[in-house]
Each structure stands twice: as structure tokens, then as C-alpha cells.
């Protein structure tokens, strides 16, 4: 039944690209890019209980890692996305090495400091990042042998991002379902006992952080490609908070849940930010309310009703 549901979802995503009007389609592209971010973030928060406030570093790095090679060295889109992906991996490794071994309180604070420092630097180094104004780029065509795909075709970006979303989902699904994923969950449920079983908890936490950071960078790269633009604002703390909101709205510890969170929050932002400038207040209230009701997120609350567990701390 579950497989059927996934199949149906994929088909509807494929068809939606054709039938949606222009505005809705670009909103959909944005949601799909963010969905990768949300799933990646959940690997960190929902699967290994590492509440990071530093994911904007990887999101921004992914965006610039993708935009800069296209802008300066005239790389193709795919190699550039791959460079952004690698940049995320490197940064996740460096920041993870420092932060993963820290205690919970230190971890959240230090990752938040990473985010703030990178934002400061990105705003300051205008020669590299373009600062607040950002950098725009013209996307080259993607060639598959004789076939040339232009991302300026209305459907180009949609199916480009959709392909990455499906690939990303499959990759993360495989990881989560593998023994490695089981160890992640074991760490979330009880870190001490997992260590007693002989697993090196730090190494597995670092692996989870790496996977999470790298896919976040991929999402940043895709988002930048869909906008043909990157700004230093991608490093701001907002981009570290928003994935938490997605995961909390959708449900922690699942892959589909955060995507539902993305869809709900994107629609919410799309409509509410149009008539109320201060919609971040609603974000704040929402965060407090959801935390009060269930730390597993809304979806997690309904699925896990009666069941033990939740976001263990």
C-alpha cells in the first residue's frame, strides 16, 4: 500500500508539471527544492536527535558552490550542482568535526554561531558573494548527447528539480532503511545504550551530520539554479530555523513528513506574507504551539498517538 502511495505521488508530480499554471509551477519548483532540504535536515534532527542551527551554512554554500563555477568558469549546470554538493560535504565535515563531540547545549549554540559567522563573512565578502544584492547567473544548456535541455524552457526547471528530488528521496530512503539508518534511530532513542552496544556514537553522529549537510547543500544549489541567483542572505539564521519549522509542522523522524511541512508552510507563506508583512510572528507562535503539543511534530503526533517515544532529549 505504501509503495502504491509513493508511486501515485510520483505520477502526480510528473503530471502536475504539465498542467499547473506558471505561478503555481514555480512555487512547486521551490517546494521540491526545499523538500530535499527538509528531508536532509530531518536526518540530523529527526533521526539522530542533533538539533543543528547551522544548516544555513550548507544551504548557502551549496547555492554559491553551484552559482560561482557557472559564473566564473562557465561550467555546465550539472557539474556546478555537483561542486555545490561537494562544498557542502567539506563544510559539513569541518563543522561536524568540531561540533558533533559536544554536549547538546554546546552543539546547538556552536552550530548557531557557525551560521551567524558565515552570514557575517558572506555579507562582508562582497567581491565573492555579491553581498546582500547577490549574484545572478545565466544558465547554460544541459546536453545529454544530441539532446539539449534548456532550463529556461518553462518545464525545464520543473523536471530538473523533480529528478533531483526523486533521486535524493531514493538515496535518503535507502540510507534510512539500511542498518546505518537503524543505528541513527538507536542513537536518537538512547545514545548511551547505543554506545554500550559497541557503536562509536560520535562517528555515526558525524556521518548523519555529513549526509544531512551534503543534501542541504544540494537543495541550496537547486534553489539557486531555479532562481538563477544566490545572495548572502542564504547564510542567515532564517535558513537554519525554517527547516526546523518544516520538520515540526510535518513530523520528525520520517522523510515524507518534512515534505508535507514544506508544502504547508510554503503555501502559508505564499498567501499570508502577501497580506501581512509581519508573518514571522505567526512563525514564532506556531513554533511555540507545536512544541507545546508534540515535540514530534504535527504529523508525528497523529501517527504516534498512544505510541511511546517522540523526540527524546
Amino acid at each position: 500500500m505504501k509503495r502504491g502511495f509513493t508511486f501515485l505521488l510520483v505520477i502526480s508530480l510528473l503530471v502536475l508539471g504539465l498542467i499547473l499554471p506558471r505561478g503555481a509551477r514555480s512555487l512547486m519548483v521551490q517546494m521540491m527544492a526545499f523538500s530535499i532540504f527538509a528531508m536532509a535536515y530531518d536526518i540530523s534532527l529527526g533521526f539522530t536527535n542533533q538539533c543543528s542551527l547551522g544548516h544555513s551554512v550548507f544551504f548557502g554554500a551549496g547555492a554559491y558552490g553551484t552559482i560561482l563555477p557557472m559564473l566564473h568558469w562557465h561550467f555546465g549546470v550539472l557539474p556546478s550542482v555537483f561542486i555545490g554538493f561537494l562544498l557542502g560535504l567539506v563544510l559539513a565535515f569541518l563543522t561536524g568535526l568540531i561540533s558533533v563531540r559536544l554536549s547538546e547545549a554546546y552543539f546547538v549554540i556552536v552550530t548557531a554561531i557557525f551560521s551567524a559567522i558565515f552570514h557575517l563573512l558572506a555579507m562582508d565578502m562582497t567581491w565573492l558573494t555579491g553581498g546582500d544584492d547577490g549574484l545572478s547567473v545565466t544558465l547554460p544548456k544541459i546536453g545529454f548527447g544530441p539532446l539539449k535541455l534548456s532550463l529556461y524552457h518553462p518545464l525545464g526547471t520543473y523536471y530538473f528539480v523533480l529528478a533531483f528530488l526523486l533521486a535524493g528521496y531514493l538515496a535518503l530512503r535507502t540510507i534510512v532503511g539500511s542498518p546505518l539508518g537503524m543505528i541513527f534511530v538507536a542513537i536518537r532513542e538512547n545514545e548511551k545504550r547505543t554506545a554500550f552496544l559497541g557503536y562509536n556514537v560520535r562517528t555515526y553522529k558525524l556521518i548523519a551530520f555529513l549526509i544531512s549537510g551534503t543534501f542541504t547543500a544540494l537543495s541550496g544549489g537547486l534553489y539557486a539554479v531555479s532562481l538563477r541567483y544566490a545572495t548572502a542572505d542564504f547564510f542567515s539564521l532564517y535558513w537554519s530555523i525554517i527547516p526546523i519549522v518544516w520538520c515540526l509542522v510535518g513530523g520528525l523522524g520520517t522523510l515524507i513528513g518534512p515534505c508535507i511541512g514544506v508544502a504547508l508552510m510554503s503555501l502559508f507563506q505564499y498567501y499570508v506574507s502577501a497580506w501581512w508583512t509581519y508573518y514571522l510572528v505567526i512563525f514564532g507562535v506556531l513554533i511555540l504551539l507545536i512544541l507545546r503539543v508534540s515535540r514530534r511534530g504535527i504529523l508525528g503526533y497523529f501517527i504516534g498517538r498512544g505510541a511511546r517515544g517522540g523526540w527524546r532529549l
Binding site: 542551527l53 530555523i241 526546523i244 510572528v281 514564532g284 507562535v285 506556531l286 511555540l288 512544541l291
Partner: peptide, 18 residues
Amino acid sequence: PSVTMIATVGISFILQQV
């Protein structure tokens, strides 16, 4: 710690926007 951090981020949003 992490729950309070997220919750106070919520409060921070509210204070800033107000």
C-alpha cells in the same frame, strides 16, 4: 537545551517583528 533554543527562537521572532 535544544527545545528551549527553538522555543526562544520563536519568542525572538515575535519580539523582533513587534
